[in-house]
Amino acid sequence: MITTLLILVMLPLAMTLWRMIVAKTLVDRVVALDMLTGVGVAIAALVAAMTGRREFLDVGFGLGLIGFVGTCAFAVFIMRKGRSEQ
């Protein structure tokens, strides 16, 4: 049952990755990165439920942390680059 859900989650993962590749602007890519970490947390939780090992929940927590820091860093980069033009 959980395996079916895990296979279902692969479709948002693949579509987000595709969106990240074909996006025209940098902001779209960072939005896709944010979504990708959310899907990654969901996949880590589902793997924890499937294998019954608690360590994968820690993996999900770390993934969420890295995704937050990465999105904030890219947002500050976009803001500085956009301002430097004026």
Binding site: V41, F61, G64, G82
Partner: peptide, 27 residues
């Protein structure tokens, strides 16, 4: 650990989204 992760996601993703939206508008 699951509750900590849920609370962490609820706290951080709105902040990241707000920061990214402001950066997108300004740029």
């Amino acid at each position: 650990i699951g509750t900590a992760t849920v609370i962490f996601l609820m706290l951080t993703i709105p902040i990241a989204g707000h920061l990214l939206g402001r950066a997108a508008y300004v740029s």
